[in-house]
């Protein structure tokens, strides 16, 4: 793509016009919210109440799947069509929030889901739904490897590149394409998770 060959900030004065990146990579205002959510998750697991575990698993899972599909299928194609400058401005504000949001959603969904499966007896190898549980483990494993091995490194590298006085637009474009592509793959795998989860919930 030719637009990604532009060097953001390579022209004198352009750097001054460029929006200032946030002072920190992770938005500090979000940390207390994450702490409250994690405290609620611990309380749900300790109490072992069906409703609390169900709430965290369904709410976390729905948000995780929804955000993945939204980013991969809607935001991604839009990002590919806008200018590098607009992409950089969007990324500077979008990526830090994703850095905090996604790991929180993942740990909330997985921890409450594991505990829920145990409470409902689905973890037992003799349970009729055990095969579906193992299938969901496998999909989550694949998602984890793609997300942590490809998507998150690209996300972090973009954030650090944006903090340079002269960010490399080509590098940002390449990393963003990787980010958007893997988000799309993850979105597809999330559809498979939806099939499994609705099958499990239907009994």
């Amino acid at each position: 793509m030719t637009d990604t060959t532009l060097r953001v900030g390579s022209v004198e004065g352009e750097a001054a016009a460029r929006p200032m990146p946030p002072a920190t990579i992770v938005p500090p205002a979000g940390i207390p919210i994450v702490a409250v959510v994690l405290a609620g998750l611990v309380a749900a697991i300790v109490s072992n109440k069906l409703w609390a575990l169900d709430f965290f698993h369904v709410a976390g899972g729905a948000l995780w799947t929804g955000v993945d599909l939204f980013v991969g299928l809607l935001i991604g194609p839009i990002l590919r069509r806008i200018s590098v400058q607009a992409r950089v401005e969007f990324s500077a504000r979008f990526m830090p929030k994703m850095l905090l949001l996604m790991p929180t959603l993942v740990i909330v969904t997985l921890a409450s889901g594991f505990q829920l499966a145990r409470l409902l007896g689905n973890l037992n190898t003799a349970a009729p739904m055990h095969g579906w549980i193992v299938a969901s483990f496998v999909i989550v494993g694949v998602l984890t490897i793609i997300a942590i091995g490809v998507l998150e490194p690209a996300n972090l590298a973009v954030l650090f590149e944006l903090r340079k006085p002269k960010p490399d637009g080509e590098l940002i474009g390449r990393l963003m394409r990787r980010f958007v592509m893997t988000a799309g793959i993850i979105g597809g795998a999330q559809v498979a998770t939806l099939v499994i989860m609705t099958r499990l919930a239907s009994g």
């Binding site: 594991f114 973890l123 190898t125 193992v134 496998v138 494993g141 490897i145 942590i148």
Partner: peptide
């Protein structure tokens, strides 16, 4: 990372059994 994720899935698929 892939190996340890596979190992974790293998272990979790048997829990709470041994």
């Amino acid at each position: 990372m892939a190996l340890v994720v596979v190992g974790g899935i293998f272990m979790a698929s048997y829990l709470p059994g041994r």
